[in-house]
């Protein structure tokens, strides 16, 4: 079996998986996902500076509030804003834009999976499969270059299939642990007000759908 045949089989498996998801979700939901995925990617690549500037602006505003700049005189406020470092720099710009895109895609996937927002069209399975497969192609084109960086970090052992699998899994695990650990270290620098907001927001998010349900039971 040639290398090209293997690639073809892998691609068919990949597209079949996305096609199956398409059949489960319906073509309308998949069309929404396709549109949002492509448009948000193009917009973030072309006009990403706007998002970066807005985020840096928000970062400077937070720095101003934390330094008590809202009650300071104008000159002091300008100095605080000027001295506050940018949250998004050239080093983390691409990663930040990718994160924004991933959040948009994930939110769209969750929202369009909800029948309250997009009604599933179960009677057009072929169309749903095709649109799902197209989504699979788009995700392959956008995600594989990023995932490839993970595999290129060090050469995989060629003599053992289990060895290669073990190396890939251990790299993914290391990446996960490093990122969670970095995120946790960053969380520990948050001021008390941010923790309060986070805890209150999460509790409200959980409690809100449960609100008012006792009245009908009585």
């Amino acid at each position: 079996m040639t290398g090209e045949t293997q690639v073809l089989i892998a691609l068919i498996l990949w597209l079949s998986f996305f096609g199956w998801i398409g059949v489960r979700r319906g073509y309308l939901a998949e069309l929404w996902l396709l549109g949002v995925t492509v448009i948000s990617w193009v917009l973030l690549q072309e006009q990403g500076d706007i998002v970066v500037r807005l985020t840096n602006f928000a970062g400077k505003f937070v720095a101003l509030v934390r330094a008590g700049g809202l009650t300071a005189d104008a000159e002091e406020a300008v100095r605080i804003v000027a001295e506050a470092p940018n949250v998004i720099t050239e080093d983390n710009r691409q990663g930040f834009l990718f994160l924004v895109w991933a959040i948009i895609v994930l939110t769209t996937f969750i929202v369009t999976s909800n029948p309250r927002f997009v009604k599933p069209k179960t009677n057009s399975k072929l169309l749903s499969f095709l649109v799902g497969a197209v989504n699979g192609l788009i995700f392959a084109a956008l995600l594989l270059p990023v995932l490839n960086e993970l595999l290129q970090a060090a050469p995989l052992p060629q003599d053992s299939a289990w060895g290669s699998l073990f190396v890939v899994i251990s790299r993914i695990w290391t990446l996960l642990v490093d990122n969670v650990s970095d995120f946790w270290s960053w969380m520990l620098t948050w001021p008390a007000g941010v923790w309060l907001l986070l805890i209150t927001a999460l509790l409200l998010l959980i409690a809100w759908p449960l609100r008012g349900s006792a009245a009908g039971k009585k």
């Binding site: 309060l196 209150t200 509790l203 809100w208 609100r211 006792a214």
Partner: peptide
């Protein structure tokens, strides 16, 4: 120790209590 004073825990608790009472 996470918050500078006791009242911080009262805020989410009271918001939830209000949601619990107002039906």
């Amino acid at each position: 120790t996470i918050f500078p004073n006791a009242m911080y825990w009262v805020i989410p608790a009271t918001i939830l209590l209000i949601l619990r009472i107002i039906r």
